[in-house]
Amino acid sequence: MKTPNIFMFAIVFAIATFSQAQEIKPKEVKKEMKRVAEWQIAHFRDTYSDRKDPHHIADWTNGALYVGMVKYAEIANSNKYWRWLKKIGKEQNWKLHSRRYHADDHIIGQMYIELYRKYGDEKMIAETRKSFDYIIAHPSKQPITLDNYKHLERWTWCDALFMSPPVWAKLSNVTGDEKYSAFMMKEYEATITHLFDEDEDLFYRDNSYIGKLDDGKKIFWSRGNGWVFGGLTLLMEEYEPGSKEYEYFKAIYLRMAEKLIKIQTPEGHWAMSLLGQDKYPTPETSGTAFFTFGLAWGINHGLLDAETYQPHVEKAWNALVSYITKDGMLGYVQPIGAAPGNAWPDKTEVYGTGAFLSAGSEVYKLYGGE
């Protein structure tokens, strides 16, 4: 009587194993990236996260989309995506968003600098440089603690490490002026000291989570750590290997990478609360995509051993692709938030698309794409 049950278990196990072990081909990676990019462009001005109005074009949500769209534009066989990004820059008059010190309002500067690198038009970065010159001359005196969202002028929440620091590093790189990098390093180190858990090699979202437990486990938000991990790759890209800055970011990156492969779920994604897989079994694609991006980048740049890390990238990428709808929408993107929560197969967000395109750009290269 027990044989059929064992037989059925074997079939299910074999199917699950096969789905996780599907061979990744660069042509297919690019195909999925195009589907998701095209869907997002067509639905760019939709509303997300149950909000009444579309995100402002310079909002952090769209800024994260632009980071991924730039990376897709670099490998797409069309200038269509560069033109789309350039149109947005012109519409925004090449200005950052409205809050001078707020990290979220800096992120669009990443796109401006990449467009400057492609087109060489100084006006694309003039406003960003002007804004950052002011900040350097008038640094915020707020503390490094968030304190119930009272203090937002410095990088008091871990998401900020994706939003603002890469802009400062890129600006130093394209202008040759080290003052932007120097300012960024000082502020980054303050955030690391405040939010990095030395025992778990992960980041608290902000100081309100330090010391808190959920079912006896520390709370490390997946997307929050994804912001940091993805941001580390963006930063390392701006520095020469062996430089003081590169080695600083590399040390944090390697600690996180080693931790991440230990806590990846059997299904391939990462739980919304990284140490709480049992309580948060629902897939979540924005954090997972950022981790996939970062891990694949590390293999491609010789920081991570392919034999150890590539199976984790493969499992994660196959999981991500399985959550794309037939229309090309990336599902299971957790709405705007600051902690583990819910995600649904039929809901997305622009930053999830950006994370997916960033991941795809590195997975494409990892599997032989030019």
Rank of each mutant, 00 (worst) to 15 (best):
A182T: 09
A190W: 00
S172R: 05
K170C: 00
E189P: 01
I192L: 07
N173F: 03
K179Y: 08
T191Y: 01
A169C: 13
E187H: 01
E200Y: 14
D199L: 03
A182R: 15
F203G: 05
D199F: 01
N173L: 07
V174N: 11
V174C: 03
D177G: 00
S181G: 13
E187V: 07
E178Y: 06
E178Q: 13
F183Q: 12
T191S: 08
M185H: 10
E198D: 12
S164N: 13
P166E: 04
E187C: 06
W168Q: 02
D197T: 12
L171F: 06
T191E: 07
L202K: 10
A169N: 12
E200I: 07
D201N: 15
F183C: 02
F183P: 14
H194A: 04
K170D: 01
G176D: 08
A169K: 05
W168D: 00
T191L: 02
T191G: 06
N173I: 02
S164Q: 14
A169M: 06
D197P: 14
I192D: 14
P165K: 11
V174E: 09
L202P: 08
Y180H: 05
F203N: 12
D201S: 14
E200W: 08
T191F: 06
G176F: 06
A190F: 00
D197L: 02
A190L: 09
K179T: 04
F196N: 02
T193I: 12
P165H: 06
E178H: 11
S172T: 09
F183E: 14
G176M: 05
Y188A: 15
D197F: 13
S164D: 15
E200A: 13
T191R: 01
T175W: 10
Y188P: 15
T193R: 13
A190Q: 13
V167L: 11
F183L: 08
E200F: 12
E200C: 08
M184V: 02
W168N: 00
D197A: 08
E178F: 06
T191N: 05
F183G: 14
D177A: 05
K170Y: 04
K186G: 00
P166D: 01
M184A: 10
K179S: 08
A190Y: 03
P166M: 03
H194W: 04
W168R: 00
P166H: 01
E200H: 15
K179L: 09
F183S: 10
I192T: 05
K179W: 02
D197E: 11
T193M: 13
T193Q: 14
E187A: 13
S164T: 11
T175A: 07
T191H: 08
F196A: 07
Y188L: 14
H194C: 03
G176S: 09
H194V: 00
F203A: 04
